[in-house]
Design a protein around this nucleic acid. Structure first.
Lengths: 188, 188
DNA sequence: TTTTAGATATATCTATTAGATATTATGAGT
DNA sequence: ACTCATAATATCTAATAGATATATCTAAAA
């Protein structure tokens, strides 16, 4: 099959429980967004392909006749396991804020400070969200065999956002000390 | 023009000094990779477009007749400044290792440990590389008006990789303590 | 000296994924 | 009843990753 990782993201999710395409998207968006994302553009065609290949099985639900739920099959599980044994691709990051800072002297400190403040607020909100998620896992999934891994997954996010917050604080201090068009002397 | 950010990455780079398409790619790959990347597939068509729009100017070099160097024009600088004043898109991360950990109980601890060890080694190499880059900037660009921003840029990378290393250490400890097919009792 | 490997340089192509849009049905609030 | 938001599916366009092709130059090896 293709090199696309959407298939494995989907298999990983329906391994936990049967899900509709929409639910898969929402799960990614609400619980995995600090390290993964999937769009409808990938989800639906991939679900169709996975079903054709026998890796997931479409099913209906009496309590929600509108949605199609997809369940993991044994061949799907085997495919997931093969992928898990393979080396992971390097982490990919794309951070427009840092690109803007790269040519920071072309902007005013005030506008850069604004950008960093927004980033700090976002990082704080994400950190809070991950901390809450960690507590919920402790409460509801403490004995789940995946729980230690889930906690590691969240831990990665929290450490990352803590580092981001630290950086924002430092960046704000440095930028605030920069001379700008509305400053007459260097602020020490 | 389009929503593509390749144009701004290119403008940012040729703002520092004139560069060829290849040099732009190399600069991204060697110095910006912890937060940005550009492929030839984007660079060359975008350079052509930027030149057509008058935002960069192609020039030849007597010392390298083979390469076309692109210089920033004043309209190009103005375009860069407009972009700098706009809010930055959220940081995007894609981390296959965490996706694998998400369904970690479907794999053996040994294989997961291997993945985390590889990630740790990569993070250490990147951290070393960024520390070296920071030292070089201090030596060669200390008085450059962009230097404080460049140092912040590198600082973001270092804090990020330090957090990653911290996480790897924790993950290794947790995973090593997991029972696996080659372990008869829980290792404490 | 010749050959080979690696780097430089440009260009374009395919594959993957982000992001947006469209349609329909349902549920909640006014 | 009407309006708005959400759920659900599907697909389309735009952006970007990654690979490939060709040519030339330089350095190292034979």
């Amino acid at each position: 099959m293709s090199r696309s990782r959407t298939q494995f993201a989907i298999l990983a999710l329906v391994r936990i429980q049967p899900m509709s395409g929409y639910e898969i998207r929402e799960f990614c968006r609400t619980r995995l967004r600090h390290f993964w994302n999937e769009s409808f553009g990938q989800i639906y065609p991939t679900l169709t392909q996975l079903a054709a290949d026998g890796l997931v099985r479409p099913a209906e639900r009496a309590d929600n006749p509108r949605a199609t739920y997809y369940e993991l099959t044994e061949p799907g599980r085997a495919s997931l396991r093969e992928w898990l044994a393979r080396a992971a691709s390097p982490r990919m990051v794309r951070d427009e804020l840092l690109l803007k800072l790269f040519c920071g002297d072309e902007a005013t400190p005030a506008v850069l400070l604004e950008h960093v403040t927004v980033a700090r607020q976002q990082a704080q909100a994400e950190l809070d969200s991950l901390s809450e998620a960690s507590r919920e896992l402790e409460m509801y999934a403490h004995d789940h065999p995946d729980n230690p891994y889930w906690q590691l997954m969240l831990r990665a996010g929290r450490l990352g956002f803590e580092a981001r917050l630290q950086w924002c604080a430092e960046a704000e201090a440095v930028i605030a000390a920069r001379p700008g068009p509305d400053k007459e002397t260097t602020r020490g």
